[in-house]
Every structure is written in C-alpha cells, then in structure tokens.
C-alpha cells in the first residue's frame, strides 16, 4: 500500500477509535457532572482544619437538600474524654422482634428499597451457639418455640480487622472505641467487608433512596448522614446521639430491655454492672478481635 495512504487510514482509524471510546464512556460524563471539584479534592477527615470541615458540612447539607429535598443539619461530633463505649445484650429476654433493626433503618437514613440495617437478628436453635444453626430470614410470630435470638451488629472491635486491611485509612477506631468510616475518603474496594468476621459492614451498591419526609435530619459527618454511592458504611453506636449523652436508637426501640449501653470507664455505669455481675461472652473470641459488644444469659 502507498505509505501516504496508509498513514491517512491510520489517522482515520485512530480518530474513529477515539470517538467510539469517548462515546462508550458517555455515562461517566453525565455522572461526573454531579460530582464537584471540591469533593474530588477533599482531604482525609483527620487532616481537615476546623474551617475546612465547616465548609464541607455546609456543602453536604446543601447537596442533601438538593438531592433529597429535605433541610438537614450535619454536625461533626467528637468523642468525649474519659469515655469508652460498651454494649451488652441479654439473650434471655430478646424475643427476636427486630424492632432494633427497624429503628436503625430509620435513624441511620438507610436505603429504603433494600430495607438495609446495621443489625441482623439470627434465630438460633436452643442449646447451640453455632452460627451455622442460625437463620436471619425467619418470617413467623416470635418468639418461636425452641429458639432464641441473637442480634448481631458491629462489635466495635478493639483489634479490628477491617481497620487493618483498609488500604487508605478510610476507617479507624476513635478514642471512645467506635470504629468509623470517612465516607468521602473510602474508595469502595470492600476489603473491609471481606475482613469483618461479623458481617457488620455494608456497601452502597447504589445511591440510597429515601423519601424527603422520611429523612432523619439530625445527622453527623461520621455516622448517619446519607452515604454516597460506592462506599462502605457501618454501625457507629449512633455516635451523633451517644456522644451527646443519648442512647443508641436500637436500645431505645427495644421493647424488652435486652440492651445495655454505657461508658466502660465509669464504674457506676449499667454496662459495668453487667460485666461485673453476669457471665458475659463475646462472639468469635478465638479470632482475637476483642469486641466491645457483649452477650449474656440470665441466671
């Protein structure tokens, strides 16, 4: 072939190829228009100055209002000095009603279409703690004969595998023991989901859907603000409530009083009373994760 003609054909081919490539990528350009440069350049939570953070919170509030049609307040709630949270659950009284899971769903602005919650309640066979005999999809009146119920949520491990494996430090343990995620830093690799032995983490497989009138407007940056698509989230012991002296939503919703929450460093707290007077146990102790979530039976 004539070399000149060959070059012309090549240029033509390359142009067509580049055009087809740009066309194939079109859905990304549309998606990109919704992302701001500020968001793209945003630094890690722990590197933000007070002024930076202030600006980000306002930006997120505006974004939420625009996308979900609801005015919300997003705060940055820090851990208190001298506090380390612990949670205990009395398996003798839990009836498996899943009100806790439902309260979590509402409090934490979970996606409505998937009915997501940070709590899974396993219906267990009496006489066995083997999770293999558990069933999370039971659909009948509770409590059922011969069963007991084991609600599982983030165990806020002291030695958390999810924190170790995260390649970008998007998740870490705060001074009050709560393991948090910076939803604006997570890259969505889901290594933490693979590492967690308690199925505590959830991924946003799509953008959460919540009707405006159902959005909980009391939000915090590290907990229940509406999460972006493509990032991992988890239970934060409702830090936007508990760090200000309130109780977790799942505890308030529990009709049986099975749940006990408090400051492990306060000798007069209920949680300390449980730890000192009940024979408590933790899930999968052999893995060395050292949970801050305890279970016990009466008697």
């Amino acid at each position: 072939m004539d070399p000149k003609r060959r070059v012309t054909l090549k240029v033509l081919g390359a142009t067509l190829g580049a055009g087809a490539f740009a066309r194939a990528l079109a859905p990304i350009w549309d998606w990109g228009k919704e992302q701001s440069l500020d968001e793209f350049l945003q630094k890690h939570y722990q590197e933000l100055s007070k002024a930076d953070l202030e600006q980000i919170l306002r930006r997120l509030e505006a974004k939420t209002e625009k996308e979900y049609g609801k005015k919300v307040s997003i705060r940055d709630v820090r851990p208190q000095e001298g506090v380390e949270f612990g949670y205990a659950l009395n398996l003798s009284v839990c009836i498996g009603c899943r009100r806790c899971a439902e309260a979590c769903h509402i409090e934490n602005n979970h996606d409505r279409s998937t009915n997501n919650s940070y709590i899974r309640v396993l219906e267990m066979k009496q006489g066995s703690l083997d999770l293999e005999h558990g069933n999370a999809d039971y659909d009948h009146a509770v409590p059922a004969e011969g069963k007991f119920y084991l609600p599982v949520q983030c165990q806020q491990c002291d030695n958390a595998p999810c924190v170790d494996v995260c390649p970008v430090q998007a998740t870490w343990k705060e001074s009050d023991g709560i393991v948090v995620v910076d939803y604006n830093w997570c890259i969505g690799c889901r290594y933490c989901e693979a590492a967690c032995p308690y199925h505590a983490r959830r991924f946003n497989w799509k953008k959460p859907e919540i009707p405006a009138d159902e959005v909980n407007p009391d939000q915090a940056y590290l907990s229940n603000r509406i999460r972006p698509q493509g990032v991992v989230e988890k239970c934060t012991f409702c830090l936007h409530r508990t760090r200000e002296g309130k109780l977790p939503a799942c505890l308030e919703a529990c009709p049986t009083g099975a749940r006990v929450f408090g400051n492990l460093l306060d000798p007069d707290s209920d949680i300390r009373w449980v730890l000192e007077n009940k024979r408590v146990f933790i899930l999968k102790e052999e893995l060395g994760t050292r949970p801050r979530f305890f279970y016990f039976f009466d008697g």
Binding site: A170, W185, I187, G188, C189, Q229
Partner: peptide
Amino acid sequence: MGRPDRFWHI
C-alpha cells in the same frame, strides 16, 4: 472499586 474517582487516595 466503588469509587474509581478517588484513585489518588491510594
């Protein structure tokens, strides 16, 4: 990756 736009974080 759920957020390939954040590749620079790694």
